[in-house]
């Protein structure tokens, strides 16, 4: 474990806590894409198949359980919880995310570290996470200005993978045979997708204005 990866995990945890806070405090999920939340739940469920077979550390197991439980709780909340469900922007959240699932699975079958069930699903989860934010960014663009908590949620979610990029650079130089190029290339794409959001987020912070993505 290095500081970059720990900071990345904490940033990821913060993004989830901010989203839970927004939904709980405002009893609303307006501006949040259910499709992105469903994709993230799928990412965690397919990435942590080794939850019960490979014990890495208490930290690793606990964090995996937190990520799986929170992502499922958010999807459940947005689908089932009466009050929250009514605030969902159903007509704006129309990204065909099943295409992302199909494309990432096809890619995972072709490009993986080893042609085994677990490795294919791991590669699938890595590719899917890279594009999982797309429905959320599209919804953001359509819904004009967003509330602060939603903006912060997306900011921390994007920042965590940027920290992971630093972690992979650090591990590449400090560990003899560290190579996780699938995660690394995917992480670069994932962080790149946030580029314009980061730009407008920075502008809104600098001008102390509401976050607005150009339509």
């Amino acid at each position: 474990m290095n500081i970059f990866r720990f900071a990345g995990d904490m940033t990821h945890l913060i993004s989830i806590l901010v989203l839970l806070l927004k939904i709980y405090a405002t009893k609303s999920c307006s501006g949040i894409s259910l499709k992105t939340q469903e994709l993230y739940a799928l990412v965690f469920l397919t990435r942590y198949l080794d939850l019960f077979t490979d014990f890495i550390s208490v930290y690793n197991t606990v964090m995996k359980l937190v990520f799986i439980a929170s992502s499922l709780a958010i999807v459940w909340c947005m689908r089932m919880h009466g009050l929250v469900k009514r605030s969902y922007d159903k007509e704006l959240d129309t990204f065909r995310h099943y295409l992302l699932v199909a494309g990432c699975f096809a890619l995972a079958v072709l490009v993986n570290e080893k042609f085994t069930f677990q490795e294919i699903f791991w590669a699938f989860s890595i590719y899917l996470e890279a594009v999982a934010i797309l429905p959320q960014l599209v919804l953001l663009q359509r819904s004009g200005n967003v509330d602060n908590l939603t903006g912060q949620y997306i900011f921390f979610l994007g920042a965590y993978r940027a920290l992971y990029l630093l972690n992979w650079i650090y591990r590449y130089f400090t560990e003899v045979r560290f190579s996780r190029w699938i995660a690394c290339v995917s992480g670069i794409v994932q962080t790149g997708l946030y580029a314009d959001f980061f730009y407008y987020y920075f502008l809104s912070w600098k001008n102390n204005a509401k976050l607005q993505l150009p339509a």
Partner: peptide
Amino acid sequence: DANDVAKDEL
């Protein structure tokens, strides 16, 4: 080889 190492990252 390196790939056999369990995935230690989240």
